[in-house]
Structure formats: C-alpha cells, structure tokens
C-alpha cells in the first residue's frame, strides 16, 4: 500500500492516494447529481427540441417543498421527500401546460424565451414565497453521517447518491424500453406528429415526459440539499446550467449520454480544483469552457452522430 501510494504521488504531484480517492468519490457523487438533472433536460429536448431553462428552478422548488414538509408540516423526512418529488412532478406538468404547450407550433425562439421567462418567474416566485435568504435544509442523520476509512472519513451520502442515481437510471431505462408508456415516449420523441397519427396521445405523453424528468430532478434536488444543506431561490441556476451542459456533452436526447456527461462534468470539475487549486476561482467557468469545446468540435455530443439538414 505504501509503495502504491508513493508511485501514485509521483504521478500526481504529491497528492496521496487517500486524498485522491476522496476527490474521486466526491466527483462521482456530484456527477450523479448532475446526471439526474441532466436526464430531464435530455428527455425534454429529445421530445420537444426545447431547452427547458426552468428545469434548474424546478430542482430548486423541490428543496423548498421538502424543507416545508419537514419544518412546517412536521412530516417525517422520508414522507416529506416523497411528497416533494410528487409535487415536483406536478409542477413539471404544469410548466409544460402553461409555458410550452401553447407555443408548440410557434417559432422556436418564442418557446425558448418562454422557457427563460418561466425560469425567472419560478425564481422570483420563490423569492416572494420563501424569502431571498438561504434556509438550512433538514439534515437526515442516517444519510449525512460519516464513515471512517483508515485516515479518511467520508460522508455516507457520497455513496448513497451514486447508488440512488444508478437505481433511478435503470428504473427509467426499464420504463422506456419495456412499458407501453415508455414506448409512447420514445415514439413521441422520434416524431410527435407521426406518433399522434398512429394513435399515441401526444399531449399526455409529453406531460408524462415532463413529470418524469422533473421527478428525477427532484430526487437530485433532495440529495443536493442533503449534500449542500443551504437552499436559496437561485440555487438551481448553476446546477441547472451544468446539468444541461452534461446533457450536451453526452449528446442531447440520449439518456445514457446524459449520465455519462454528468459524471465527466462532476469528476472533471472536482479534479481540476483538486489538482490546480490556483484555478479554483474558475471552477464555474470550467463547465462552460468544456461545453464550448464540445460544441465546436463535436456539436452532437460524444454519443451523437451528424445529421445533414434536408433541403
């Protein structure tokens, strides 16, 4: 072990293996959170060719739902969390119905502006309803405790997050590939006009897509709140943008791609800061630089292929 560590330190500028693993697990759990949010972006984009700018704010709303469930309604944390996820699903459907459905045949730019408007509306509503000052997210001892590994102590959450993510990912893939609802979703994503002609209830299916995407973001939001227990009306902006970037990196419209993109981004972000601490101020810029590089060299993401526009 000592030897391995020495070799490792040689290659990593003196960072020891334990610290490295700590960063890696951190990166993986951050990446998992991005992945959960990214799936929602990718599903909606795959269906409506729309960047749901408000997705990050939906994620923010979840944390407040969970917060009030525990603090005001005195619910046990798990009840509150489940209710928060369900409420978020409903919010996602409402968002689609109010902000996107009326514009389905409008120019793309209008829909995108509507998305930006919805995002700001949610943020400002949160300021009015919940107050602008950050609140402390309820802590759940069983999840937020630490466990000791030799000299390093790691929060249980660091393991819980990726596991939950993987479970939900497989659940989603099962839903998409083996259920009737999933089949309808895939059909609508491929071409909603044709799917409609073939008898798929397009509006219902799009609603379901939003509900599922939002609920996954909700799960991400709750775990985000546990990991970084300060919630605020603008907390969804950065994670939202980064998750979107993760979806682009993975090839937007592609669910597995979104997850891979989430991991790449989460791990990359943590590692850059770990290895080049002088750049830590640029942490938030990293994702954007990455995004731009990907867009310029492989605009359809690492899993996508080029499509020529028909003339």
């Amino acid at each position: 072990m000592m030897n391995l560590n020495a070799v490792f330190q040689y290659f990593t500028n003196g960072m020891d293996l334990g610290t490295f693993l700590q960063h890696l697990t951190n990166g993986i759990s951050l990446g998992s959170l991005y992945a959960l949010v990214a799936i929602g972006y990718t599903m909606v984009y795959g269906t409506l060719r729309l960047i749901n700018f408000a997705h990050g704010d939906v994620f923010m709303m979840t944390t407040y739902f969970a917060f009030y469930g525990v603090s005001t309604f005195m619910l046990p944390w798990y009840v509150s969390f489940i209710l928060a996820v369900i409420l978020t699903g409903a919010l996602g459907m409402l968002l689609e119905k109010g902000a996107y459905r009326p514009l389905r045949n409008a120019p793309k730019i209008s829909i995108m502006i509507s998305a930006i408007g919805a995002s700001f509306l949610l943020e400002n509503l949160a300021v009015v309803l919940f107050g602008g000052r950050p609140k402390a997210f309820p802590s759940v001892k069983v999840l937020t405790d630490s466990v000791q590994f030799g000299s390093v102590s790691i929060q249980k959450l660091t393991f819980v997050i990726p596991i939950v993510t993987i479970i939900f990912l497989f659940g989603l893939l099962y839903l998409l590939n083996h259920t009737k609802t999933g089949m309808a979703m895939r059909a609508v994503a491929k071409d909603y006009e044709t799917a409609g002609i073939m008898g798929v209830n397009v509006n219902l299916t799009i609603s379901q897509t939003f509900a599922i995407g939002s609920m996954l973001a909700a799960v991400g939001g709750i775990m985000w709140g546990l990991k970084f227990p300060q919630i605020a009306p603008l907390m969804g902006v950065m994670p939202g943008l980064k998750a979107f970037i993760a979806a682009v990196i993975g090839g937007i419209g592609n669910i597995k791609g979104a997850v891979i993109g989430g991991f790449i981004l989460g791990i990359g972000e943590i590692m850059i800061v770990a290895f080049l601490p002088s750049l830590s101020g640029y942490r938030d810029a990293f994702a954007f630089v990455f995004l731009i590089v990907i867009l310029l060299f492989k605009p359809t993401g690492i899993t996508g292929e080029k499509i020529a526009e028909k003339v």
Partner: peptide, 16 residues
C-alpha cells in the same frame, strides 16, 4: 421581490 414576479409574468404573457 413582487416586482420581479410581475416582470417575469409580463414576459411570459407577451411571449404567449
């Protein structure tokens, strides 16, 4: 913050 709510709602109304 109410002002901003009205503002964003306004944008939504214009777009919609």
């Amino acid at each position: 913050g109410m002002r901003m709510v009205v503002f964003s709602a306004l944008l939504m109304i214009v777009v919609l």
